[in-house]
């Protein structure tokens, strides 16, 4: 199908984007790679009055680092991010999840920021940001704000972004000491959206117990979530604990039902894949701790 008629706007600076957002607000769609939005436009699931093409706003393509964070501009392409060794070694979970994202021909154009803006419940990039406790920087004509990723995703294709805001950057916490990561998913075809994706971050204390666990789930509920694992802090970082966490979490989640999978299957994936990633992160973190 073909998109509705829209006005095409191609700003060169952030200020011009702000002018357009003031003028059109929610009647405009912002396009970067267009890998998700292009499909929605062609199917007329979105019918904007104006399309704001941010591909010429070069300052959105930067990657910067501070002591604890990697800051990726909204326009950083997925394939380019994967080739950036400083980013991949600084944010190992992103290096693990990006190979699952899309295909050679879509990653070349799709952006990190676009995936977060689109907010597909099973997309890997939002799940990674949520699991790591990262955040999203938004800019509107009235100012800049930062929203924790865990508060940013509200539901299916729905986020905390207001109609007059632009995502300018994503903030990724850098690798922490004695911490390890793991990521896995099941999809119908490699590169497709996951039926269920799981991510884990684990920190192991000197005595071999868990100092911190973050267990993220994508494609299970209508937005990426982090399971409550507080009761497991202080428990031994073992395979049994990993299995127990996955089983407890699988029973509490409220999985989506669609043509690909029913709720029971998604619960089972949380059990099996969850126990696998947690156990892998625990092992790796223990090894890092011993080497330190």
């Amino acid at each position: 199908m073909k998109p509705v008629a829209f006005e095409y706007c191609r700003p060169d600076t952030l200020e011009e984007v702000m002018e357009l957002l003031t003028e059109f607000g929610g009647d405009a769609s912002i396009i970067s790679g267009g890998v998700s939005l292009g499909a929605m436009l062609n199917m007329r699931l979105v019918r904007p009055k104006a399309l704001i093409d941010i591909n010429h706003v070069l300052e959105l393509g930067n990657v910067e680092f501070d002591d604890a964070t990697a800051i990726t501009g909204a326009l950083v392409r997925q394939a380019a991010a994967q080739k950036m060794t400083s980013l991949m070694s600084g944010v190992p979970l992103l290096a693990m999840s990006l190979p699952w994202v899309g295909h050679y021909q879509t990653k070349s154009r799709g952006t990190l920021g676009g995936s977060v803006a689109h907010a597909d419940p099973s997309a890997e990039i939002p799940l990674t940001l949520v699991t790591l406790g990262g955040s999203v920087t938004l800019r509107s004509p009235s100012g800049v704000r930062e929203v924790a990723a865990r508060d940013f995703f509200h539901g299916l294709l729905t986020t905390d972004r207001r109609p007059d805001e632009l995502i300018t950057a994503l903030n990724w916490p850098l690798r922490r000491a004695s911490t390890a990561y793991a990521f896995e998913e099941i999809a119908q075809r490699h590169g497709d959206f996951a039926i269920t994706a799981v991510a884990a971050e684990a920190t192991v204390a000197i005595d071999g117990t868990l100092a911190n666990v973050s267990f993220g789930l994508g494609g299970v509920e209508d937005h990426p979530i982090v399971a409550d694992t507080a009761e497991f802090i202080g428990r031994p970082a073992t395979r049994d604990t990993a299995k127990e966490i996955a089983e407890v979490v699988a029973d509490i989640v409220d999985p989506m039902v669609d043509l690909q999978a029913n709720a029971d299957y998604r619960r089972q994936l949380v059990r099996v894949l969850g126990s696998r990633v947690l156990s892998s992160a625990f092992n790796e973190a223990s090894a890092v701790r011993e080497a330190a």
Partner: peptide, 13 residues
């Protein structure tokens, strides 16, 4: 120099 989908691009871009 990038292999990409031409159905997700507009000619004016």
């Amino acid at each position: 120099d990038v292999a990409t989908r031409s159905c997700l691009r507009y000619a004016v871009q």
